[in-house]
Write a protein that binds this DNA or RNA. Structure first.
Lengths: 344, 344
DNA sequence: ATTAGCACTCGAATCACAGGAGTGCTAATA
DNA sequence: TATTAGCACTCCTGTGATTCGAGTGCTAAT
């Protein structure tokens, strides 16, 4: 049996209807569609074939059919056509970024909010990675005896600062000297390439403070990865709007999984090499996500990338979600890029 | 009719049972208790009185009684006796702080986790306010043309740093000079007392940079309040464990209210003058919280205070919750205090 | 003042039953 | 040969009706 054009169209019609209604679709519903002029009996035969081929499932004998995950996969890969946002929607998105948003965190939060309110799904946004950002200045500030705050200023503004241990007895002027040496040495270097070991002359210059320096730089590297803390979540409770999660037990599992952001971080960082990543139902590794679909996309801030995505029921309007991710991703990228450019 | 000793004991028994079972309690259940030797008929009469007095309610004619909010209020004010934690529980709490927790945020997060996992309710912890902390050092770090990062180092480690606008053309050495003047001037001053206006000599010294300084200090003040961002939440989905929230609609309302932390912040900061604040059901101002009880407490880090609390069903084990808040509050206070003392 | 006894109430669970949406199969049709 | 009308069949859903039992309130006895 082969998946001819007609079967495709019928399958698409079923998926479209099911996405809208969340109830099993019957043959009559399809036969009544204006662009399909076949009797319900014919549709029934085709549906029967599609079920045999694994694209449809029957909750019980006398119910309609619902698309299988295999069907959604086919839909996403082959059937679906690129959706476009209305002008009003584009304006709305633009409007969301017009206010005074002057901090990275604010922009990320706003993005997550826009995404979840436009999709009505749960959204997540990951801050851009800072690895390839160039160092502008490194400054040590004494905090207390034996401790200092290392502030690294980059092209994109300040990175997270880190408290490090310094040799006891190191005073302010010494720190000043170290700060200057470090700045001079690393100015213009990408954060990921900052390493004391590679630079013998630096080791010599700082000699006595060598170990401390190693510690400082490793702390710095650790703080490079935004980590799960860099994930901004929004609309977690949107999932409760969908009949799939009317069951409190299921909802709990899902929401509990969101509470620790490790999994979201993994989802967002796993696929940064492609524009879109779509994981449908059981394709998700995480058990609590196996009746969801996760769609993620990347956005660019200059040379660095961040990612954003949504989590919703498998029965999801993939085309629209992708259009939104594309557009919002572009927007947030532009906003952040210009925000940082203006700094220079 | 008066609330005599016997009525009190019966009411307490009803509340205790209802807290445990969440089902209306009947007269027989009470009469069977070992320390109450009365027939069910007698209990029925007393229950009828208690209902008339407003302490009990009947879901329907032939069901048992459930305590009214007025009853819980009475319970909390007069009947309840202080509970104590077991040694094992105390050890558990201690154990939770034994690991290497070297950052304020980590400690706060851990505290929220402990609190929610021991109570099985939703917990929230607010970072200590920084108002009365003493300044140790103020440092401006250039970020880009016209912008600088103001880092304030205090007794308790670094405060949040803020990006401020500086006069164009201000170079590194000038900033250095300003930093030194500010540090010298404000060292040992409480953050809340830092203000350029009050110090004429400073204005003179900095003269040309005066406006910029005002801006810097006002930004600083704004960052003093931890704000809603200083609230750490944990166990939000615990509420789904309770039959009161088996209804998805109700659960959604509750969880959505938690998503923006403004309300939590208000709850935690409203009552910092007393050791405990207990708001039962309708006593809460916020609509979404009116079938919950909120219990908050304060903890001390040296002279500054923070607060922590839990949100759960009205049917809550108040005595245990208060014991836990007291103990965990003491623990987190000690941990943070010693953490910062060690810094000196 | 307490309690045994009893009629009464009302929700929860169970069951039977009708209604209806939808299927699958067969035979007729173009 | 592909399509379709017709029809029996399946099985879910909603609705009453019925039963069951926990619990109450009242009265009369202790």
């Amino acid at each position: 049996m082969e998946l001819d054009m007609r079967k495709m169209r019928i399958l698409q019609a079923i998926i479209d209807d099911y996405i809208l209604t969340a109830t099993p679709v019957g043959s009559r519903t399809i036969s009544k569609l204006p662009d399909i002029s076949l009797s319900s009996a014919t549709i029934r035969n085709e549906m029967s074939d599609l079920e045999e081929m694994g694209y449809l499932e029957q909750p019980h004998t006398s119910a309609g059919r619902i698309p299988s995950e295999k069907a959604y996969r086919l839909y996403v890969n082959s059937i679906m056509r690129q959706a476009h946002l209305t002008e009003a929607e584009k304006r709305f998105i633009k409007g969301c970024y017009s206010n005074t948003l002057d901090e990275l965190d604010q922009v990320i939060r706003q993005t997550a909010w826009v995404l979840s309110s436009m999709t009505k799904y749960t959204s997540m946004v990951l801050k851009p990675a800072l690895r390839s950002v160039k160092v502008k200045r490194i400054q040590l500030v004494p905090v207390s005896e034996g401790r200092a705050l290392a502030v690294v200023v980059t092209d994109l503004g300040a990175t997270r600062d880190t408290i490090i241990n310094v040799p006891r007895g190191m005073d302010y002027s010494q720190m000043e000297r170290v700060s200057n040496i470090l700045t001079e040495r690393f100015q213009g270097t990408a954060l990921q390439d900052v390493s004391a070991r590679r630079i013998p002359e630096l080791r010599a210059a700082l000699d006595s403070q060598r170990e401390f320096l190693d510690e400082a730089l490793s702390a710095l590297h650790k703080s490079l990865d935004t980590g799960p803390g860099g994930v901004q979540l929004a609309g977690a409770t949107n999932i409760l709007n969908y009949p799939e999660y009317n069951d409190v037990e299921k909802a709990r599992g899902f929401l509990a999984a969101l509470e620790t952001k490790d999994m979201l971080y993994k989802l967002l960082t796993e696929a940064t090499d492609v524009e879109f990543s779509i994981r449908i139902g059981a394709e998700n590794e995480d058990k609590d996500m196996q009746d969801c679909s996760v769609v993620t996309a990347t956005y660019k801030v200059g040379p660095t990338i961040g990612s954003l995505g949504i989590i919703g029921p498998v029965r999801m309007d993939y085309a629209r979600v992708m259009a939104l991710l594309r557009h919002i991703g572009k927007s947030v990228g532009e906003v952040l890029t210009s925000m940082f450019e203006e700094d220079r």
